[in-house]
Design a protein around this nucleic acid. Sequence first.
DNA 1: CAGTATTGGATAGCGTCACTATCTTGTCAA
DNA 2: TTGACAAGATAGTGACGCTATCCAATACTG
Lengths: 204, 204
Amino acid sequence: MRISELVDRTGVPLATVKYYLREGLLMPGQATGATQADYDDAHVERLGLIRALIDVAGLSVKRAKAVIDVIEHPESDLVRTIGRALEELPPYGGSDAAEYPRAKRAIEALGQVYDPDYAAVAQLERALAAAEAAGVPMTDDRLRAYGGAIMELAEFDIGNMSTTDPADAVKYAVLGTALYEPVIAAMRRLAHQDAVYRALGGSS
Amino acid sequence: MRISELVDRTGVPLATVKYYLREGLLMPGQATGATQADYDDAHVERLGLIRALIDVAGLSVKRAKAVIDVIEHPESDLVRTIGRALEELPPYGGSDAAEYPRAKRAIEALGQVYDPDYAAVAQLERALAAAEAAGVPMTDDRLRAYGGAIMELAEFDIGNMSTTDPADAVKYAVLGTALYEPVIAAMRRLAHQDAVYRALGGSS
DNA sequence: CAGTATTGGATAGCGTCACTATCTTGTCAA
DNA sequence: TTGACAAGATAGTGACGCTATCCAATACTG
């Protein structure tokens, strides 16, 4: 299809499609001449992915490109590849303190291995520090309650991951992380409302 | 304390503190003269909250102000007040479609009440649509697994909410939502890594 | 085959945002 | 009384994510 049809099918403005092409988020079409190129369903899908990463997952254009690059060119080492992609996902790590006391305590309380090289450790530290600074610190009780529920989530995710195709596993892991976090957040908010509603016996 | 001490204690640059004052995020100090004002621990705490909302929860300055306003001046109707604050939290709802088929199906599958007026319904719809568009659609299996785990989270949260002091409840609900979502996201990522690590038998 | 439309490619501009810097005027403290 | 600091106002900055315009080279259309 021509670029105008791609624009029509996705709803993404022409100028923006060209911008994504320039930035390397969208692969160029098959050139059929000096001023013409063919686009196909892969381009439609890619635009969907780009918008999902930018609009829903909240990534910047640059980080979205990094994530797409990782998915397109996975390394042989699965765990490292996924780790690399996850570092592009928000929240982003600023200065690396090399010391994450809150995160360390939490992780060890849950019986997990504490490895300060994981980007998520720094993320957890900052999230915990922020909650503390704002006056709603993490308690041991809550840590235990959250830990159990989150283990459930994680075990389902990992259990459903393809172990045969590494490229698929990377895509699943990265998109699963980036795109299901908003799903989980929304579901939690709804569950809160439901719980409050039931706690109040259905009255406003 | 003087403004310079506030700057030193929080690490927030002077120009930025003035900016927050201008924008109404930070309450003015007690004026002791035409060019002098006193700041106290409440100001230090507020700056911590502002940075937590902006840097960790990812709010814009304007939305952070809206959240702070709600916490400071809660209405009598608890549920409505919390709802108002939650709409300021990302991800933000764009055009209201009034029809949320994916979210409706999911919510009813979990046995909750579907009310399209909740902002979180639109958020869930967009998150589900994005996952679908990106090629990792929500399955019934996953919905059930997530639903159970998330109910656990929500029940703990609501169970620990103060039912006596409305102002406290609002603060707890809003900050709990805004600041614990990053905590949960980080914990899930770590749980993923832990699960993969154990699935691979400890080898890299 | 003339004429209009469309494309790819390049470049420049725009609006928002979150600061940041400067300047003025007043004031406190030594 | 002098020099550092403060408040308040205003303008500027750099990044970001588009968006608009131009141009030359085709491609369809009648």
